[in-house]
Design a protein around this nucleic acid. Structure first.
Lengths: 151, 151
DNA sequence: GTATAATAAATTGTACACAATCTAATTGTA
DNA sequence: TACAATTAGATTGTGTACAATTTATTATAC
């Protein structure tokens, strides 16, 4: 059996053969596209998806929020303090279990949802995929996200 | 014309209707999977893809490196200093244009490629996509990455 | 030939990410 | 009921990301 060509031995270490690299780069590029739209709301992208959970839930623990967003308390604690400083959420210990911090949407946070409608509206023209391509990408990303830990 | 249902007015602001969120979350999850494999090389993921470019190019300017990786000097300068401190690269000003910093692979950096073969080998079992799915995902991600700026 | 513009990195400041550790509260159990 | 184990957040430290600014160098315009 012949050895693989010298130029092929390291094929798996070439940037153009990685799946993760375009995943990582595309993620940052799309978030970069969001920035000007989010600047009008004084939100970062991570703060924006946090607000999405709160617009749906009104109230949620830091732990559950972290499970939804795949983020831990090291990221969420300062981010939630920042949202609290902006007046969009409150953070209070649960009465029934003092370990738990409940994050609650304020009236100002709820009002922000109306203004935030401009964000997906403004982003629509940025993603140049057909509806079919977007649907396929969506499915594959969730398969990667939820199925990668093994059986 | 009837108003849309109240529950649908904000459909575009629901986390489950975002394409960007699974992109962002999957990117971080896959990079998290890389970590234990990269720890053996004392490299972060960003340092790893930087080394990939250098394994292919041997020498490259910071500017070109940034274009390849979609990263700017604010990210690359400290990262390259770190790789220099580990002994994997050198950074020297170009003689023909003193503005340009050339990053060069050292012998130790080249040797690291052999050890790095274990990384894609170890990762293969982590991504639970078929070859077809991976190929489709790869194409869609590059379309998103290169085609999103408009015509 | 010098003022001006453009370019490449570096620096600064803000905000994530995340591993590791710490603190306080709760639960399980002998 | 003590008390070890578990749990939820907060904290600490390191390493990105990236906008904005600065510095040094090169290109150009006149």
């Amino acid at each position: 059996m012949p050895e693989p060509l010298e130029s092929d031995r390291y094929a798996a270490l070439r940037l153009e053969n990685q799946l993760c690299f375009p995943l990582y780069a595309a993620s940052r590029e799309v978030i970069r596209q969001y920035r000007p739209h989010l600047d009008a709301l004084d939100l970062t992208y991570t703060q924006y998806i946090t607000m999405m959970v709160l617009w749906a839930e009104r109230e949620i623990s830091v732990k559950l929020l972290g499970q939804r967003l795949y983020l831990d308390s090291g990221t969420l604690t300062p981010l939630l303090k920042s949202l609290e400083a902006k007046g969009y959420v409150t953070r209070t210990r649960s009465e029934s279990d003092e370990r738990v911090v409940l994050v609650r949407l304020t009236d100002a946070g709820l009002s922000l949802q109306e203004k935030a409608l401009s964000v997906p509206a403004g982003m629509r023209s940025c993603v140049r995929l057909t509806d079919d391509e977007a649907a396929t990408l969506y499915k594959l990303l969730y398969k990667l996200l939820t199925g990668e830990k093994g059986i």
